[in-house]
């Protein structure tokens, strides 16, 4: 009986980079509801990252509209737009010349929060991502491991409780054990704040494990956008089917999903 609201809407969006043979994003239309954790998966160069960067205007679309909370992102001041969007990337991109506390406090300071509120929020966030504020606040990024750095990256993006979180392969450069821990943290955080998450990954298992819905992209187009169970049960086409096949369970590993992969719905057409 929960009424859902649309958080993000792509309307026939295309982006073609100068010099590229094919468009990076090719007439994409989709809708994401508030509170969803959408994972985006597909081949490299399939347009996943471009799709993400169109949301916070690091890229701008050639055509089509992107509506965030009902408003066209192109009609908003990019700085103001970005204050409301969390952004986490694989290389983390912490400011090396600022302490951990200062890194987390960047957006609160841009929004001119008062000191007490900022300090309280930084403490809360460091605890949320599993870092002891007393130990880590005054450290510099170089003193942290890759996994710890990405926890800070996550805390920094969450600082002002953004309506949308964009995560571009955030755990891509982190070892498997640490990654599993971070995935659990992310699920916990998402469950707690129920904001809208767009999560790009090239790891199909990660996509299926985290996503409430999975968006499968190739050649700049949406191949299938559905819940993990739906996709496994009925892959939309040969590409999706093949992709799922690559993730078949190796011995001793937990299965991708409890289910047998269905036959592709459309075997002839490969868009």
């Amino acid at each position: 009986m929960t009424t859902t609201t649309t958080a993000l809407k792509f309307q026939d969006v295309s982006k073609h980079f100068a010099g590229a043979a094919t468009p990076a994003v090719d007439h994409v239309s989709l809708t994401v509801e508030e509170g969803e954790l959408v994972t985006i998966v597909g081949t490299s160069g399939g347009g996943k990252t471009t799709l993400l960067k169109l949301v916070n205007r690091l890229y701008e679309p050639d055509s089509g509209r992107i509506l965030l909370g009902g408003r066209d992102v192109m009609e908003q001041d990019p700085a103001v737009l970005r204050h409301g969007i969390g952004y986490v990337i694989q290389q983390v991109g912490l400011f090396p010349h600022m302490t951990i506390a200062q890194n987390v406090a960047v957006t609160p300071r841009l929004l001119k929060w008062d000191r007490a509120r900022t300090v309280a929020r930084v403490t809360e966030l460091l605890e949320l991502v599993g870092l002891d504020p007393a130990e880590f606040s005054a450290r510099y990024p170089v003193q942290l491991s890759g996994g710890q750095q990405q926890r800070v990256g996550l805390a920094r993006a969450l600082a002002c409780d953004p309506a949308v979180m964009l995560l571009d392969e955030p755990f891509g450069a982190i070892d498997a054990v640490t990654r599993a821990g971070l995935q659990n943290e992310l699920l916990k955080i998402h469950a707690a704040n129920r904001r809208t998450y767009l999560f790009v990954t090239h790891d199909i298992r990660e996509a299926f494990r985290l996503g409430t819905r999975v968006l499968i992209m190739s050649s700049g187009r949406v191949q299938q956008f559905a819940t993990p169970a739906e996709i496994v049960a009925a892959p939309a086409n040969q590409f999706v089917y093949d992709l799922l096949k690559t993730a078949t369970v190796e011995e001793g590993e937990e299965s991708l999903l409890d289910g047998v992969i269905g036959q592709p719905v459309n075997t002839t057409e490969m868009p």
Binding site: P78, L81, R82, T107
Partner: peptide, 23 residues
């Protein structure tokens, strides 16, 4: 300059002037 750091600065909503002076 590390591209990721500069990109993160812009993505957090810093103005170009602030990115220049602070990052």
């Amino acid at each position: 300059l590390p591209a990721a750091v500069v990109e993160a600065a812009f993505a957090m909503g810093m103005s170009p002037a602030r990115v220049f002076w602070r990052v």
